[in-house]
Design a binder for these strands. Structure first.
Lengths: 158, 158
DNA sequence: CACGATTAAATCGTGTACGATTTATATAGC
DNA sequence: GCTATATAAATCGTACACGATTTAATCGTG
């Protein structure tokens, strides 16, 4: 192992010694884009974008969430989630209704069409597993590590 | 391990059995956003956005690349890279000059200011390492696994 | 040399992300 | 019961991403 690959001792880690291809941030950035590209043809068949699909997954898991709750699950703010949910509404996959008890809140509910859409995504997991080129166990392990990293990063950013 | 956590036998893997929090795509998506958030305060000090920073890293690694070469390194198309590089030009970090030999190509060169900016990023690596909350060795291993996953996904998408 | 095919950037339209602000509603303290 | 504060969404402006197309330059073949 060369010094460049090692990046030197940890206490002297210098950004400039690391090539872009070995940046953790870049591997996350480009892997996310690559995942997006694998999903794109699957999602085009059901007429959703990638973030819209993630919002639908959150709703299939629990229907009737508030805008803020969906945002919390996706780690997004209302300024991103609100227009996204309006598009899902215009596609007739969800309804947006102000809560009677608290008029500040907007509750999102799946329509029949939105609920039915879940069936069309049943084989997505096996498609992604195949595309990932690793075993189920390795994928699960990697997923857990990335999630742990994310939570550490979020804590550090807060 | 329950059936839900296991997702069932691999040959019967069903998307609907997996909660959003255990989607590999969502962990990549949210970890990428989390990384972005950790970088944001660092990048604000030097006046760059996250993708602009990645483009600068590519140029610090090799100056004088073509628009298409930078796009290939970042896995982005000209429709994304061109406006990004124009912004870096308006910030006086790079110059954009059409090649004399082939007028279709535009070569990007670091300005003195753009070259000097690299010095301000020296401690980014140790900041990210600290924020990631894992050891250098674990980080390196994780980075390699994510990169391998990305390459598999890109091959599957092609 | 001519001309169709190819290539490199750029352009355009849609949809995220997000900082900052605004609007509307609810709650707390006096 | 009235006002200050807090909260939930929504709005606005900027900057990615990317599919589709356009523009301009080069190349290949006759």
């Amino acid at each position: 192992m060369t010094d460049t690959q090692a990046g030197g001792p940890a206490q002297h880690l210098k950004t400039g010694d690391i090539p872009l291809s070995q940046f953790l941030c870049f591997s996350l950035y480009s892997a996310n884009h690559a995942m997006h590209r694998v999903y794109k043809p699957l999602l085009q068949k059901i007429g959703l974008t990638y973030p819209q699909y993630l919002a639908m997954v959150a709703l299939w898991e629990q229907d009737g969430q508030l805008v803020g709750e969906i945002g919390a699950r996706l780690h997004l703010e209302s300024n991103t989630v609100t227009p996204l949910l309006k598009r899902l509404e215009s596609l007739s996959f969800v309804t947006r209704v102000r809560d009677d008890k608290d008029e500040r809140q907007v509750r999102i509910r799946l329509t029949e069409k939105g609920t039915a859409l879940k069936e069309d995504t049943t084989d997505f997991a096996s498609c992604i597993l195949a595309a990932s080129g690793i075993s189920v166990d390795d994928l699960r392990d990697l997923q857990a590590r990335i999630t742990a990293l994310r939570d550490n990063l979020l804590e550090a950013a807060a």
